[in-house]
Write a protein that binds this DNA or RNA. Sequence first.
DNA 1: CGAATTTCTTGATTTAAATCAGGCCTCTAC
DNA 2: GTAGAGGCCTGATTTAAATCAAGAAATTCG
Lengths: 236, 236
Amino acid sequence: MAYITYPAAGDAKTPANPAANQLSLRGSFAEFGAKAQVFGAHDVIFYEGDPAKRLYELAQGTVMLFKLLPDGRRQVVEVLRPGDIFGLANQNEHECTAETLTGAHVHEIDLKQIEGSPDLQRKLTKCLMAQMQVLHEHAVLLGRKSAVERVASFLMYLVPERGGVGCPGPSDEENDGYDLHLTMTRQEIADYLGLTIETVSRVVSDLKRRGIIRIDRADRIHLTKVCRLCQMTGIH
Amino acid sequence: MAYITYPAAGDAKTPANPAANQLSLRGSFAEFGAKAQVFGAHDVIFYEGDPAKRLYELAQGTVMLFKLLPDGRRQVVEVLRPGDIFGLANQNEHECTAETLTGAHVHEIDLKQIEGSPDLQRKLTKCLMAQMQVLHEHAVLLGRKSAVERVASFLMYLVPERGGVGCPGPSDEENDGYDLHLTMTRQEIADYLGLTIETVSRVVSDLKRRGIIRIDRADRIHLTKVCRLCQMTGIH
DNA sequence: CGAATTTCTTGATTTAAATCAGGCCTCTAC
DNA sequence: GTAGAGGCCTGATTTAAATCAAGAAATTCG
């Protein structure tokens, strides 16, 4: 269950957890009296259909947004990282569910407050522009990429400063490596990539067999050949 | 080719075409000295990779945004309608190509000008929120819907005030009808829905055979049973 | 107008991924 | 330690959509 704190007004700048404080500097909402909330892993922040009144900024952790079809099919539409803003609703209801993948710190703020501040407006616009770009790239993935390309793109997305787009120069060919921690289960990855859990599992096994990745624990993946993987994303 | 006009400053409020003038009232950029541009059908407004300096507001017509993979695969990521804003770039380059589907009137404005106006900021935020919601729905379509559900959703999207979401009440079951004009070719529809042209053609033929739609010219479709079609979108 | 080009449709076949089904780890709890 | 549960992997089979391959409409153009 969610462990939610509502600090006294003006207290948001000094949360109990120093790490959260450090990370919340990434955004600027906390300085405007935003409520700070702490969630555990796999907590729901809001459900599709819930009344939408506020905006959320992820300060720490990972959150996914997903939509469900009546028959149970699920599509994860966004995977959010610290600094991302979510919970915007065109109408009065949330159009997707927000669920944490890890423990998470979230700042909550009223849209009206943002509208009053040109600085926050600018920040919001910049954030939405970046998210829109990610959504466009994800549309390409879902609409036009093969299963292998989807998984390769997903893994590259987890490499900081690469985001599945950039490719290392010729200097670090073949034997460059990178360790990454998976916060998503195979089912969540499948629902993000528009695949089944079996297909994700098979593709990952195949990458392992080909020596492109190495796996000890299911949630820890070592990318043995980042460059090779990058070339499998369909972008190059 | 594009027929581009750059009216003298302050002239944007009075374009030659009265229809354009009427429609431009939908937005508010024209009042802030935005450049007005007129494009023909199938003109490129900007290419993926072009330097991005300005923002565009569609005043009249239809525009699509698409991305290409190096091997030629294409994904149409958005289909824009009057009032929509596009051309936002996180970095300094456009991340997708903008091409008109019909003749179109476009207002061009500097992001800096918007940042100076709280009213425009609000409008921009509202517009981005709405577009993001459409992108989320489209991710569900691309990631989780069957070919029939995709085509049904697409057709419903073209019914004003429905947008593939709402369904008419039980009063207008079966024999409600709606005429719509397709501004996209089968190939463009396929690239929007993440299908091949053949699959789109087959699904459309099948809907015709089942009496759900009627087609005389390839670009004019009469929806014979809007309600039935709505039930085929996967949403109900 | 008729030729040429493009767009659309339809059929036959292939294939990538889904589905169906079972077994194997890994962690937790007792 | 053993039992149970959930997550993960793998194999066999099916299937929806892609691909391959012609034709048939439209549309453009000389």
